[in-house]
Design a protein around this nucleic acid. Sequence first.
DNA 1: ATCGTACTACGATCTTCGTCGAACTTCGAC
DNA 2: GTCGAAGTTCGACGAAGATCGTAGTACGAT
Lengths: 103, 103
Amino acid sequence: MSTKILPQPERADIRVEAVLQALGEPVRLQIVRVLAEHPEGVCCGDIELPVTASTRAHHLKTLREAGVLSTHTEGTRRVSILRRDDLDDLYPGLLTGVLTARQ
Amino acid sequence: MSTKILPQPERADIRVEAVLQALGEPVRLQIVRVLAEHPEGVCCGDIELPVTASTRAHHLKTLREAGVLSTHTEGTRRVSILRRDDLDDLYPGLLTGVLTARQ
DNA sequence: ATCGTACTACGATCTTCGTCGAACTTCGAC
DNA sequence: GTCGAAGTTCGACGAAGATCGTAGTACGAT
């Protein structure tokens, strides 16, 4: 079983516009909220969403390319983790502000 | 000279999705950065932007309706101010995180 | 190797959104 | 009052993006 990390931007290449745009979509914000509750990572398919699997994959890709989350393989499964360290370092307070918002 | 405040959401009606979506647009983020440097408010037309006046008006309306800024009239001019208190109260750290980002 | 599971990639469709120009409104100045 | 300046609103256009179904890939199990 080989564990691979899917392509993602380096910390230095994360742009705030991309992060904000990624977080500004309700479904994606929902994904981020779930990830925030599971620091150990979440299997993509386990996140309940009102969209099909292909749409979910698309949103996860958007979040990954924006630098919001990191995804690695575990067998046939893909586990996503919030890049909290990187985001907190680049934009201190941003994530906290977003996550403490009433839903 | 009557000073009017243009319609804007109450603090309690500000939704984080709307704020993030509003901030996730490069031109609008630029506007917010300018406003952050001028707590006393900025006249709409004084913000240099790579778009026409009508597009600027559209972005300012989007930001105002999202609860990011407040606009009041001063004669024929309209002065916009960042709603920093409200945003800091609702999403502590969000604005700081966004504004401290390297551009 | 074959099968099923988990996910991704591709194309198509439909909606949203950023942009503009032109027309309209409002206000101060004259 | 008329004029000009500052902004807004409207309609249209094109680009971007959210969604889906289908086909394809990668892996573990048998």
